[in-house]
Design a protein around this nucleic acid. Structure first.
Length: 601
RNA sequence: GCGCCCGUAGCUCAACCGGAUAGAGCACCGGUUUUCUAAACCGGUUGUUGCAGGUUCGAGUCCUGCCGGGCGCGCCA
């Protein structure tokens, strides 16, 4: 089989932009006032078919600098545009829009590109820069992922796919908070559950990790060398646990209790012994998270460990850089970073009075390290509750000598599950439906991936389990997948009927596709590369979701209106060519969303 | 109190660095298959874009104030 030649076709929109640029270049008085206006951004798809296929508002944009009326400018541009085989008609309309009616030949060319490029259709040529580092999820490794992390996962993975399709190099990274106090709490939690399983029952701290998975980890750890100390030995000198209340006293007492037990765990097991428990717990949880995500189609180029950041001295290095620049000061025994000098609202502690470096110190070092590793542009995808960190991490980057603008943060709002019209409670204790794994097993990976990105990330998401699991027309993910399966069925039916598809004949007969449904389907299909570009630029997967639904709707209309496997071979082959192309576009779009494109349903 | 995000049709949501008459799905009503998958299609109804101003050729989109909701404001992570 000959290698298929991949020719990365520019989106149709760029064709129009290029025509406009060429025309403008021929009009000196306009060329002089374009400035940094990007002609491409003036071109958009029309909403109304009577306005043609594309419209540009460039004449309106240039009206002010050129000090002429928009229509006058439009008129001279249209004259300079002249004739082109890809454009049937150019009109000036409304306040000064230039409307382009594309030729059938232009759409046929696009259809051929789809068939030629196949799974690469819609992919743009590789850009050298910026090299993007996309960090997402980065959930603490203290337990299984919950449904909120699922949204971060689906959103991050899809944005990464979109950016790659748009030609960027994307490095996917998960930051593992495997250092610090919470790891101690995790270790102590597992230790106490292990003791309990070995007959030593210590009142389980309210501030510890209480999930059942902790017992499972405790049961599974290699406990060689761990000793079941007596209750009185362990509790000696340890204060009582605090109450359930939200008062500062209760809180402080709960902290004191777990803190004392952590100290005891280290003392009795030795630092090495406790470290072994802690690391086993961590590895077990990380393995679970990684497997969970892999099943969900979410993978990373690097799992970046906070421990490694410490061990390699990068945190100390970062603090040394700040120190050298005079950007650290002492107050109340702690070391502070003057974040207010860089636009944050408060100064921040980087080393606590007790000598322990804060999470923020790691964060500065980590983001500094990202830039030092050669990534030009950093995107962090965070839960909406983390928005307070944005300005301080930016401040850190700036203090380290980079631009704050090098860091973009996309915040993802919370997820609520609904079943039977009722909000599903997700507290860990009543915990019917808290984990991503449970959600995936109930609704399936496809529906979960799809629903998570169906809404804009800055809107809270109401995830309706009834709709996501229903196999009906209420469920958009099935609607789209069904179109793909339907097309696959047409081709297998053609084989059954011995109506083998002649591609060349089909391509030569595209001019027969003149039904309104077919024309709008061809037009819709040609949007795809622009949709990818737009969705990538806006970090907005829902744009792709909406597009696919619209595209598929056009397909279903066409399918219902026109029988494909008819007697007229030329028309049949042309329609099969169209459907083959639609199938490719649907598959490509679903692939970016991480949703399967089934051949049969 | 201060900061960030949000407010669009009965419901859930779109709307491309500001563009032409603000669009879909669901729900509701009626219709379509001797034909390639009816998980489909066709037709019908839905708006003071939270409120009030401002910026301009043009505002759901930008600015100001207010109302309503979410989140954040630790020597926690």
């Amino acid at each position: 089989m000959p290698a298929r030649r991949i020719r990365l076709q520019e989106p149709m929109k760029h064709i129009v932009a290029k025509l406009l640029s060429n025309a403008l270049a021929e009009i000196p008085e306009l060329a002089a006032v374009i400035g940094d206006l990007d002609i491409g951004t003036t071109v958009e798809r029309t909403r109304d078919v009577s306005h043609g296929d594309f419209a540009s508002n460039v004449a309106m944009q240039l009206a002010k600098p050129a000090r002429k009326s928009p229509r006058e400018i439009a008129s001279s541009i249209v004259t300079a545009l002249g004739d082109n085989e890809q454009v049937d008609k150019i009109e000036i309309a409304g306040p000064g829009f230039i409307n382009f009616h594309m030729s059938a030949a232009a759409f046929h060319t696009e259809l051929k590109s789809v068939l030629n490029d196949g799974s690469d259709y819609g992919r743009q040529a590789q850009k050298e820069r910026p090299k993007i580092l996309l960090e997402y999820i980065s959930a603490n490794p203290t337990g299984p992922l919950h449904v909120g992390h699922g949204r971060l996962a689906a959103y991050g993975a899809t944005v990464a796919n979109l950016l790659e399709a748009a030609g960027y190099s994307v490095h996917r990274e998960y930051y593992v908070n495997d250092a610090g106090r919470q790891m101690d709490i995790l270790g102590a939690s597992v230790w106490l559950r292990w003791l309990s399983a070995n007959g030593v029952n210590i009142p389980f701290p309210k501030a510890a990790y209480r999930g059942d998975y902790i017992r499972d980890i405790a049961a599974a750890i290699n406990d060689n060398g761990i000793e079941a100390f007596g209750k009185d030995v362990i509790l000696e000198g340890v204060p009582e646990d605090g109450g359930d209340g939200k008062s500062d006293d209760d809180k402080a007492q709960r902290e004191a209790y777990i803190e004392a037990l952590i100290a005891k765990a280290k003392q009795l097991n030795g630092d090495d012994g406790f470290d072994r428990i802690r690391q086993q717990a961590l590895e077990s949880i990380l393995a679970d998270i990684e497997a969970d995500l892999a099943e969900f189609g979410v993978t990373f180029d690097k799992w970046y460990s906070e421990q490694s950041l410490m061990k390699t001295g990068r945190i100390d290095d970062a603090l040394a850089v700040l120190e050298k620049r005079g950007l650290l000061y002492k107050k109340d025994g702690a070391t502070w970073f003057p974040a207010t000098d860089f636009g944050d609202e408060k100064d921040r502690v980087v080393v606590r009075e007790n000598g322990v470096k804060t999470y923020f110190a790691s964060d500065i070092a980590y983001h500094f390290d990202k830039r030092e590793r050669g990534f030009d542009y950093l995107i962090d995808i965070l839960g909406a509750d983390h928005h307070g960190y944005v300005s301080r991490v930016r401040a850190g980057l700036e203090a380290m000598g980079y631009q704050g603008d090098d860091l973009e943060v996309q915040l993802v709002q919370f997820v609520s599950l609904y079943r039977g019209g009722e909000k599903v409670q997700m507290s860990t204790r009543s915990g019917k439906f808290d984990t991503l794994r449970k959600l995936r097993s109930e609704v399936g990976n496809d529906a979960a991936r799809f629903y998570y990105v169906m809404r804009s990330n800055d809107q809270p998401l109401d995830f309706d389990l009834d709709i996501a699991t229903s196999q009906s027309n209420e469920n958009p993910v099935y609607y789209i997948q069904y179109a793909h399966a339907r097309i696959a069925r047409v081709f297998s039916k053609a084989d059954e009927l011995d109506l083998s598809w002649n591609l060349d004949n089909g391509l030569a007969s595209l001019a027969l596709l003149i039904a309104p449904q077919e024309k709008s389907l061809m037009s819709a299909m040609s949007h795809y590369p622009e949709v990818i570009e737009l969705a990538a630029r806006n970090r907005a997967p829902q744009i792709l979701v909406h597009y696919l639904r619209d595209l598929v709707s056009d397909f279903h209309s066409s399918y219902n209106a026109h029988k494909v496997l008819g007697d007229d071979a030329a028309l049949r082959d042309a329609r099969l060519a169209l459907y083959a192309a639609v199938k490719i576009v649907v598959a490509n779009g679903l692939h970016i969303l991480g949703v399967s494109a089934p051949e049969a349903m």
